[in-house]
Design a binder for these strands. Structure first.
Length: 643
RNA sequence: GCCCACAUAGCUCAGCAGGUAGAGCACAUCCUUGGUAAGGAUGAGGUCAUCGGUUCAAGUCCGAUUGUGGGCUCCA
């Protein structure tokens, strides 16, 4: 057999044609033990199995645990192991697909009876046995026709459909199958060398999921799980899940007495309690001031607008199912799901000159959207919410600068909370209005601004709003979870539909461009995210209660009342705990309520005119006068500013 | 909207071979005046989500409705 030249780690090795990757690695003395032990390989950049036979020369690189692709290979392989276990225990089940996902994997099964928690335990047990005996992943290639026959014989209709689609949509002629034990699955691979690698896994939950994500197709049973290369990483991940549960804003919202929802009031409708409302208005006031500073005007529109307007804007055709409608004196009205219409009417209330532009209208606009019942979730998915919404009207010449200004605004505000973010550019969806030309202009404008700013972004094809493309900002919270908040949408269409114009310097009537944008997105959602991000320990400037005076005995009551009054006069949100309880009890409670500062007042302090200051978390700041405390607390008790 | 699970005191939960409810925390009263994460005693508090069915008898079994949770689809 002819030799082929394979380059491994920079060194060229001559190998017989048809050699397996594994043998090549042996020849190149790639470690076969320890963390550098390869589990797969890259051949000229393509991921392949260790059992792959090399039929031509090329560049071969080992893929070990540290490789970015390694975890996906592991998880996908564990999904196969799970499917094998499921098929053994429930032979009547039909298998579908089982990919690796961000934090683990899932596999969808067609099974008449749903899996019970007991079933999960049995499956997990069987998986551990499979892992123990180190079944090899064996790859086999068949023609598409052979594969269809193979799966038809086994009654695996979903696999048959997948192959038929591959043939039809991608012209695929040959497909690969992977076998472990008696379980054979259609799969591109690559996979682990054998099942012994998959030891650190855990099955997490069962859920319904539509076949191919289509709500008109059958509902399948999905099992979620996760897997890591070692026990430690798995435990860390499970701990993170626990931590997320501990930080759940619905739980903290109740414990900190921020808000509630009531089934008597209705799903997805938030009731703000005093502390939550205080937090919210603090956030709102911060934003109002920051908008005024950046040249925005504050405006307010009505809650309902005539149905004709929603028809003209395109909402009736594109968004009607999500809207509430009502009738007054025989006249139809739509409750606003967005704030843009009234802002356009403010624009239209005068003849505008190019000198007036840009106009930036800002509204904390409360909108109603009829969300499907199954999607409601705490503060993050509700039916009535308030957007920090603005519409900017500008000339095509100044559009670029306005988009960049918004990007800076987003960066500042997200930075104020310690959020990092990622950006997506969403392009024209199937259901949309406006000309191709307008869409291209708008998309290019957003893209150019991102490029000029040097901001990395990804394209999210077909996910734009119906009236224009958008930049979506996904912020990352303290646990690394991503949330959609800010959005910047570029719109050439609504100005057209509502005949917005300005007189340009050549005396001609021209069409302004409209930017829709939010920064926090929805106050409700943002507060939910903040709550989880800070685990309820909000920065001092946002904390509903910033300082609490704690008395040691009732002899300090009078002084404590005076102290509270002085703190409030100094602009701090202060309370006093005068209850007949021990200091330890009061500390514990203030700590659980995440009050940033605790001021202890006992006989000594009363006598010396001081307080003993303790920070949330336990740090002892020592004994000081009230004035010293207020000047110490002042900086962090004020909202951030960029001057 | 769809799949599954769940719904008992303000909160977290127990109760189940169907025989008319229990704990801890919180709350109230009293005692305790105690220095940095829970002092003690006593007490009050529930038409067991709603409606209907089976049964001599239903928190417990069955059905429907509403709501919640985990997902799917959708989305700020």
């Amino acid at each position: 057999m002819a030799d082929i030249q394979v380059t491994i780690n920079g060194a060229v090795h001559g190998l017989p044609e048809g050699s397996r990757v594994q043998a090549a690695f042996q020849a190149a003395k790639v470690p076969a033990k320890g963390p550098q032990k390869p589990l797969a390989a890259r051949f000229d950049g393509e991921l392949v199995d260790l059992s792959f036979s090399l039929t031509k020369g090329g560049e071969l690189a080992p893929v070990d645990q540290s490789d970015p692709a390694a975890l996906d290979i592991l998880r996908h392989s564990v999904a196969h192991i799970m499917a094998e276990a499921v098929k053994e225990i429930f032979p009547e089940v039909k298998v579908t697909i089982g990919p690796a996902i961000e934090n683990g994997f899932y596999y969808d099964f067609d099974k008449a009876e749903p899996f019970t928690p007991d079933d999960l335990g049995r499956i997990e047990e069987r998986m551990r046995e499979i892992v123990k005996v180190a079944q090899p992943f064996q790859r086999q290639e068949l023609t598409a026709l052979q594969a269809v026959e193979f799966f038809k014989d086994r009654g695996e209709d979903y696999k048959v459909e997948l192959i038929e689609d591959l043939v039809r949509d991608q012209g695929v002629r040959r497909v690969s199958l992977y076998r472990i034990g008696d379980f054979v699955d259609l799969c591109r691979g690559p996979h682990l060398p054998d099942t012994s690698w998959g030891g650190s896994f855990k099955l997490l939950s069962v859920a319904g999921a539509y076949w191919r994500g289509d709500e008109h197709r059958p509902m399948l049973q999905r099992i979620y799980g996760t897997a890591f290369f070692n026990r430690k990483d798995l435990d860390e991940h499970l701990h993170l899940l626990e931590e997320a549960k501990r930080r759940d804003h619905r739980r903290l919202g109740r414990e900190l007495d921020l808000f509630s929802v009531s089934d008597e009031v209705g799903g997805g409708l938030i009731i703000w309690h005093p502390k939550g409302a205080l937090l919210r208005v603090t956030l709102e006031e911060f934003e109002r001031q920051e908008h005024l500073r950046r040249g925005y005007d504050i405006v307010m529109g009505p809650q309902i607008l005539r149905t004709e307007l929603w028809k003209r804007s395109g909402h009736w055709d594109n968004y009607r199912d999500n809207m509430y409608f009502t009738e007054i004196d025989g006249q139809g009205y739509g409750i606003k799901p967005m704030n843009c219409l009234a802002h356009m009417f403010i624009y239209r209330s005068q003849l505008r000159s190019f000198r007036d532009l840009p106009l930036r209208f800002f509204e904390l606009g409360t909108v109603q959207r009829h969300e499907k019942s199954g999607v409601l979730h705490g503060l993050t998915r509700v039916r009535q919410f308030t957007q920090d919404d603005a519409h900017l009207f500008c000339t095509p010449e100044t559009l670029d600068g306005e988009i960049k200004g918004i990007l800076d605004f987003v960066t500042d505000l997200m930075g104020a909370f310690g959020f990092e973010f990622e950006i997506e550019l969403s392009t024209r969806p199937a259901k949309s209005i406006g000309s191709d030309e307008a869409w291209n202009l708008a998309t290019t404008a957003l893209e150019t601004a991102l490029k000029d700013k040097g901001v990395p972004y990804e394209i999210n094809a077909g996910d734009g709003a119906f009236y224009g493309p958008k930049i979506d900002v996904k912020l990352k919270d303290a646990l690394g979870r991503r949330w959609q908040c800010s959005t910047i949408q570029c719109d050439f269409t609504l100005p057209e539909r509502f005949d917005l114009t300005y007189i340009d310097n050549d005396g001609q009537k021209k069409r302004p461009v409209m930017l829709h944008r939010t920064i926090f997105g929805s106050l409700e959602r943002f507060i939910g995210i903040l709550t989880e991000h800070f685990a309820g320990a909000f920065p001092t400037w946002l904390s509903p209660e910033q300082a609490r005076v704690l008395t040691v005995t009732s002899r300090a009551d009078e002084t404590a009342r005076e102290a509270r009054a002085r703190l409030r006069k100094a602009g701090l949100r202060a309370e006093a705990d005068l209850r007949n309880e021990k200091l330890g009890y009061k500390i514990r409670e203030a700590q659980m309520q995440k009050v940033p500062f605790m001021l202890v007042l006992g006989d000594k302090e009363v006598e010396n005119g001081t307080v003993a200051v303790r920070r949330r978390g336990g740090e002892d700041l020592g004994v000081m006068t009230l004035d010293d405390f207020t000047s110490l607390a002042e900086a962090e008790a004020r909202p951030p500013r960029w001057d």
